[in-house]
């Protein structure tokens, strides 16, 4: 495996294979994780009120039959099974659910799925380059910019959005730009460093 991981070593140096050994009990989790049942049953009872939305999610065109009240967060997690995007509060107060819509960060819990119709959605799964980590993610690893990691996908998306808008932010701009994402573990100090580093990586700096 040592050799194997050398061969698959990505540009970023961090690919899934290097890490797979540590999955441990996670394998069990993966075996039982499946689609949420949240929507199918109700779908029948309210079939008439359904809408069909066309989203581009992480570069893939998807169509989903949704109820008007479904949020983008619910559709991403329960229908598309993209559980990287996390619910924290479901009312715009934590940022765990942050995604990019047309490249701009917003809260998927405060976005009706119907509103995302026709838009380009990027989730944490979508900033990966294949199985390699994106720049922001790589910087988060390097600087240990998380503890429990639950807020992390949201932080990564906020940082990604920030850097797309402002490729060379000052540390104060980073602080401001990341102020829509709570981290109860309080990894902020490392998050600031990681976002700075990510900017460097994105600008083609030292990898």
């Amino acid at each position: 495996m040592g050799k194997d991981s050398d061969q698959t070593r990505s540009q970023s140096g961090i690919s899934r294979r290097n890490f797979i050994g540590t999955l441990g009990a996670g394998a069990l989790g993966a075996a039982v994780a499946g689609p949420g049942t949240a929507t199918t049953q109700e779908a029948q009872s309210a079939a008439d009120g359904h809408l069909v939305v066309a989203l581009r999610v992480n570069g893939r065109q998807v169509r989903a039959a949704i109820e008007p009240r479904h949020t983008l967060l619910e559709v991403l997690r329960d229908q598309l099974e993209l559980t990287g995007t996390k619910p924290g509060c479901a009312r715009g107060e934590c940022g765990a659910c942050s995604v990019l819509m047309d490249g701009v960060p917003r809260y998927s819990c405060m976005t009706l799925a119907a509103e995302a119709d026709g838009h380009e959605i990027t989730t944490v799964e979508g900033v990966m380059q294949g199985e390699e980590l994106g720049h922001v993610q790589q910087a988060f690893v390097e600087h240990d910019a998380f503890q429990c990691g639950y807020c992390t996908p949201g932080q990564v998306m906020a940082a990604e959005g920030l850097l797309r808008r402002s490729p060379n932010p000052s540390i104060e701009e980073i602080q401001e730009g990341m102020s829509g994402n709570l981290c109860r573990c309080g990894a902020y100090a490392h998050i600031f460093k990681a976002v700075s580093r990510a900017a460097e990586l994105k600008r083609g700096g030292e990898v």
Partner: peptide, 15 residues
Amino acid sequence: PRVDAYERVSGTALY
């Protein structure tokens, strides 16, 4: 860096 950093930043960690 953490041994499970990849899972935590990639969104593949299952909570």
